[in-house]
Each structure stands twice: as structure tokens, then as C-alpha cells.
Amino acid sequence: MNCQDFESLALALARDSLLDNTTREQGLIHTEGCERCAARLAEERALHTRVRAVVAELAGEEPPARVDAALLAAFRAHTVTPATSNVLPMLIRARHWPSWRLAAVAAGILILIAVMTIFWRSSSSLKPQRDGRAGLPAPVITPQRPAPKMGGEPPVDRDQVVAEQPKKLPKSARRRASADSSDEAEVVTQFYPLREGEDLTELESLQLVRIELPGSALSEVGLPVDPETVNEPVKADVVLGQDGLARAIRFVR
């Protein structure tokens, strides 16, 4: 056996695996007469020992319970509505952004809101006679008005809708919700509790799950449903507790 042959066996020799006795013996005999290969084998063995130590250290590392809960909820959502294959649970990222990135995103949102406010006010002052609703997106979902009447409804304040924030959630969930909703300038409703009498701020951790529901689901929380779009999917964010149970819901457009 020469040094080149030995090199191809070094890893297996160090791991003591995948070698028959004859090959192993030949390799070890080679190291007795070759200092360089002996050192090479010693180094590989030391590396193998270190790797084993890291493996042992990481043996208990597992995803936190919130990942388990979120996946279980996603499984349930996936299996409960197999016929409507448009139900695609998307778990909101549980990434911990660096503070400077959060600050940058927050600053960006504030600037966007300020620019939109200035733009909207200047355009409405130029056209004072125009109907307040004409230039607005007229969201189907009207936050803070669970069951508005169709006639005589005052114009929806767009600033109020854009800046809408969940009120009963812990700060971390609000921050995440705000950052997520800013991605595509989504219009969201307030969060509607799904379990009466529970204070969400007392829960240790929460997870947001983006799902799609039939339009008829709006009526479940007292929101108006357009008969023409009743079967069209509606996006919603569901707040899950650590146990995977849904605690609150908001609708997104």
C-alpha cells in the first residue's frame, strides 16, 4: 500500500468503518512505516473524536414547542378541509430579526404612512366636492365595525385601516403582525377572539398562521358577506397558543 492508497482509506480507518480486516491491517501496517500517514491518521481520529463530542452536545437540541404546535395546527387545518385544497397554511416566520433591521422596517412603515397621509390629504383638499369614498379602496372588511349597515355608512378612514393594530395581543405578536402586514400593504381587521374570556397577553408564546378560508367564514365573527363572493377564498391570520389551539382571528385583504 502506498500513501495515495492510504489517503483514500484514512477517513474510514479513523471512523473504523466500512473496511474489511485485511484492508484495515494493510493501512495500519503502512502507518507504522510512514510518519506522514501516521500523523494524518492521528489527525483524522482527533477530528472524529471532536465531531462525536459535538454530536453528543447537540443530541438534545430539538425544535421548540411552538414549532410542534404550529405544525400540528397546520396538519389539522390541512386535513379538516381536504376538499377545499386552496387551504394552504403558511406559518409566519419565527425569525428573530436584529434590532437594527426591526428599526429600519418600523421607520419604513412610518415614512410610508406619513407619505400616504400627506398624499391623501392634499388630494382630498384639491377635490372638496368629491364623494369621500370615490378615491378609496373601499375595503369589504371594516375594522371596528363588526356589522355595518349597507346604507348611510360614513366613509372609511384609510389611515385608520392601514394603521390598524391588534389591541389585545402581546407586543411581540403585534410587532410581527405589523411587520408582516407591511410587506404587501395589506388591509387587516382587528383580531376577533375565538375563545371568550381569555386574556391573550397572559399566554407565554403565540404563533400566527396565515390561512385561506371560504368567504362565508366572515359571517362567523359578524362581518358582512357579499353573496357574490361567498365562495371565494379569504385570507386570515389565526393566532395559535402553544397548545396549537386557535385563540383569535383577523381577516386580511
Partner: peptide, 28 residues
């Protein structure tokens, strides 16, 4: 399998946040 996937992502990225997200995405 969750441990395998989580630890693989952790060793590859060095970040628990990425390991969590990868575990979620793989099982989804």
C-alpha cells in the same frame, strides 16, 4: 425526524431561528 432536521439546519446555518424555520417548512 424533527431532531435530525433541526440539528442539520442548525449545523448548516449556526442559527436557531433558521433551524426552526427550516423544520417548519420541511414538514409543511
Amino acid at each position: 425526524h424533527k431532531g435530525h432536521i433541526y440539528r442539520f439546519a442548525l449545523l448548516m446555518s449556526g442559527q436557531t431561528s433558521i433551524a426552526e424555520e427550516v423544520t417548519q417548512e420541511v414538514f409543511l
